[in-house]
Amino acid sequence: MAPRRGRLDLGGIRPAGPQEEKTLMDAENVVGLFIALALLGYLVTALIKPEKV
């Protein structure tokens, strides 16, 4: 995808100006953490108690 015209490429450096305040754990991080822990719990349970066929 080509960069838009008239836009300065800052090479990944954020411009100075008002910074967005970041909270320690925003909702997106909490949801991701919950899903990761649920998946980890499921995999550990499947490892310890596998299904018997």
Score class of each variant (00 low, 15 high):
residue 5 R to G: 14
residue 17 G to N: 13
residue 32 G to L: 06
residue 30 V to Q: 03
residue 42 Y to S: 09
residue 9 D to Q: 11
residue 15 P to L: 13
residue 39 L to W: 06
residue 18 P to N: 06
residue 46 A to S: 06
residue 40 L to T: 14
residue 29 N to L: 15
residue 37 L to Y: 04
residue 44 V to N: 04
residue 46 A to Y: 08
residue 39 L to T: 15
residue 16 A to M: 09
residue 40 L to A: 13
residue 34 F to L: 08
residue 21 E to I: 12
residue 1 M to T: 00
residue 52 K to L: 01
residue 45 T to H: 00
residue 43 L to H: 13
residue 32 G to E: 08
residue 35 I to D: 11
residue 29 N to W: 02
residue 12 G to N: 10
residue 13 I to H: 04
residue 21 E to A: 06
residue 51 E to C: 03
residue 47 L to N: 04
residue 39 L to E: 15
residue 53 V to F: 02
residue 10 L to D: 05
residue 15 P to Q: 03
residue 14 R to T: 03
residue 16 A to D: 02
residue 3 P to G: 06
residue 33 L to Q: 08
residue 37 L to G: 01
residue 40 L to C: 10
residue 9 D to S: 08
residue 17 G to A: 14
residue 49 K to L: 11
residue 39 L to K: 13
residue 2 A to K: 07
residue 42 Y to L: 14
residue 15 P to A: 13
residue 50 P to Y: 00
residue 3 P to S: 04
residue 7 R to A: 05
residue 20 E to F: 07
residue 36 A to V: 12
residue 3 P to Q: 07
residue 53 V to N: 07
residue 7 R to D: 10
residue 47 L to G: 12
residue 46 A to K: 10
residue 7 R to V: 15
residue 16 A to P: 04
residue 37 L to W: 03
residue 13 I to D: 02
residue 22 K to N: 10
residue 43 L to Y: 13
residue 39 L to R: 08
residue 31 V to N: 13
residue 37 L to A: 09
residue 14 R to E: 09
residue 36 A to F: 12
residue 4 R to V: 00
residue 49 K to V: 04
residue 30 V to W: 00
residue 31 V to T: 15
residue 35 I to P: 00
residue 34 F to W: 05
residue 19 Q to R: 15
residue 32 G to S: 08
residue 21 E to V: 14
residue 34 F to I: 04
residue 16 A to H: 03
residue 48 I to P: 09
residue 43 L to E: 14
residue 12 G to F: 07
residue 52 K to A: 01
residue 42 Y to E: 03
residue 9 D to C: 08
residue 17 G to W: 01
residue 3 P to Y: 05
residue 35 I to K: 06
residue 2 A to Y: 07
residue 23 T to G: 07
residue 40 L to I: 10
residue 8 L to N: 14
residue 13 I to W: 05
residue 38 A to F: 02
residue 38 A to W: 01
residue 35 I to H: 02
residue 10 L to M: 07
residue 17 G to C: 14
residue 38 A to S: 11
residue 15 P to C: 05
residue 15 P to G: 08
residue 20 E to D: 06
residue 9 D to R: 09
residue 38 A to L: 10
residue 8 L to F: 14
residue 42 Y to H: 06
residue 41 G to S: 11
residue 26 D to T: 02
residue 38 A to M: 09
residue 8 L to Y: 15
residue 27 A to H: 04
residue 49 K to H: 04
residue 28 E to H: 04
residue 52 K to M: 00
residue 20 E to H: 10
residue 30 V to P: 00
residue 31 V to S: 13
residue 36 A to Y: 11
residue 13 I to Y: 02
residue 7 R to Y: 01
residue 13 I to V: 14
residue 1 M to P: 08
residue 7 R to Q: 12
residue 11 G to L: 06
residue 17 G to R: 12
residue 51 E to I: 02
residue 30 V to F: 01
residue 37 L to E: 11
residue 19 Q to F: 01
residue 50 P to K: 01
residue 8 L to S: 13
residue 22 K to C: 11
residue 31 V to E: 15
residue 24 L to K: 14
residue 51 E to N: 07
residue 45 T to P: 00
residue 36 A to G: 05
residue 48 I to R: 06
residue 10 L to N: 04
residue 17 G to V: 03
residue 40 L to M: 10
residue 37 L to C: 12
residue 41 G to L: 09
residue 44 V to H: 02
residue 18 P to G: 08
residue 27 A to G: 00
residue 17 G to Y: 02
residue 27 A to F: 09
residue 20 E to A: 11
residue 2 A to L: 08
residue 37 L to Q: 01
residue 48 I to S: 02
residue 38 A to V: 03
